[in-house]
Amino acid sequence: MAEIVLETQGLTMRFGGVVAANNVDFTLHARELRCLIGPNGAGKSTFFKCVTGLQTPTEGQVFMRGEETTQWMSHEIASLGVGIKTQNPNVLDSLSVFENIWLAARRFHTPIEANRKSQEIIERLALSSIARADLGQLAHGERQRVELGLVAVGDPWLVLLDEPAAGMSAEDVERMTEIIHELNKSAAIVIVEHDMQFIRSIAENVTVFHQGSVLMEDHVDLVMADQTVRNVYLGKKA
């Protein structure tokens, strides 16, 4: 059995009286690719934020490669070699594509090595023609791609992506799928996503969230065929 790279035990997040994530047990193995799906308000993004250190869970524990990271801040988690992409493109708008990727590379490499790695990632992601352009000037799909470059340049062993395909054209989604498959050769990946077509193209296993809890965890085809899941997505009682 492959090493467990991410595990949560009884993860719970409350906002006042609202329980956004409720006693979530989750396990991810090395080089596994898992999609988290569920309707709006199901608790996927809250779970994502608790795992990435953007929020501290009210109860429960988070482990990465066996080390407890429950109370860690996001920079400490990222320093472990975890690549994180948030829901909205979170980039440095007034800096160029190269500068953005170089800063991400510099965290893990010497300046000279960071130059080389940045150039390599820019070529891999087909960003050469816009390498000197400011991020603020780029289209949404290009910005998403650059953010994936920020994640990839650190050679992560765990990648956490929140809605990477949101607002992208079919061509961009196709390119994004290729990049994610490439990343998956060396890293386990968790993707929070709504786009079912994208999920079918990319994942084998999915975890369904509903009302803050894990409703189902299985192969994507079985999940899609499940009547309870269909009811949840259509707003019927689960």
């Binding site: 920079h75 994180i84 948030t86 800063l103 510099r106």
Partner: peptide, 17 residues
């Protein structure tokens, strides 16, 4: 350069580690 990055987007720089 990292300071400039922090000025631009603290969350992103934190997510970079």
């Amino acid at each position: 350069r990292i300071a400039v990055g922090i000025r631009e987007n603290e969350t992103r720089m934190s997510l970079m580690g």
